[in-house]
Design a protein around this nucleic acid. Structure first.
Ligand SMILES: [Mn+2]
Ligand SMILES: [Mn+2]
Ligand SMILES: [Zn+2]
Ligand SMILES: [Zn+2]
Lengths: 138, 138
DNA sequence: CTAGAAATGAGAATCTTTCGCATTTAGATC
DNA sequence: GATCTAAATGCGAAAGATTCTCATTTCTAG
């Protein structure tokens, strides 16, 4: 029962929060905007307020249940946190998203922060390109 | 005369465009939002419409005169394009911005794109941390 | 110098996200 | 199980950033 996760995170196990968490866990799509979550829930007959979706996703982020990304600058994209950090590579044609981890890059980032006198807190790395499918489609 | 740059870029040498370009070239601050540019121009007695600032900065970006960044996800930050790519490291306390280039990271990014079947078009990398000043201040 | 296309400015409109507040609910207590 | 209260919800209003509309102005080619 997911109410465990919520309790652990210091959040009351409310109906909207359970719905949203369940949805995120069962969705085959990993990266979604608040609007995506909202509409998907509506489509599956679940009533939730849009403001609540925004609030809950932000709370989930603070609780570490979810990670927020800024793929294109404007709106936020959320993803269930699986515990391990990863970065993203995105197709600028079709919007496909792939994930990767590169230890060399991770290490260099830490070194660069150090070299510049910073204590590193976080980083965000996106590679933009054209995926194999879109390349062959010309 | 900067009107050269504009003509070359396929842009008519209008008064607002010249003002904005001149401002960017003479500003000691390298990274600015559209609003920053707008207000700074007003403060120095130059009249320009905010919508025009947005339009012109976008045109400059298309023309390669300027680069757009998304430091925090929401609003765009612009910077005069000096021809050479670089990435950024930002202080989350004071907003300080430093620039760097790391050939190892650049090379790894290209390799990762290749490994995933993508042809790389671009990338964005931001390191967030606490700068030396902010570390010592507490 | 003139005409026509392109650019500007002002405000309205849009989009995403947050706020305010009356109403409902979780869950601790009796 | 009934009650209580702080916390959470949902709605619409409001916000901030950016874009759009369109009447008016300004380049610049001829
Ligand atoms: Mn991911
Ligand atoms: Mn820079
Ligand atoms: Zn693609
Ligand atoms: Zn700092």
């Amino acid at each position: 029962m997911e109410s465990k996760d919520l309790k652990q995170a210091g959040l009351k196990a409310t109906v909207p929060r359970l719905k949203i968490l369940k949805f995120l866990e069962e969705s085959k799509v990993r990266h979604m905007s608040a609007e995506d979550v909202y509409k998907s829930l509506l489509d599956s007959g679940e009533e939730v307020g849009l403001a609540t979706v925004y609030r809950v996703l932000t709370q989930f982020e603070s609780a570490g249940l979810v990670t927020r990304h800024h793929f294109e600058g404007d709106h936020s994209i959320f993803e269930l946190n699986d515990g391990e950090h990863h970065d993203h590579i995105l197709c600028v044609k079709c919007g496909r998203v792939d994930e990767f981890v590169d230890d060399v890059i991770e290490a260099r980032q830490a070194a660069i922060a150090r070299e510049n006198g910073y204590s590193m807190e976080d980083h965000s790395l996106y590679i933009f390109g054209i995926c194999s499918d879109c390349q062959s489609k010309k």
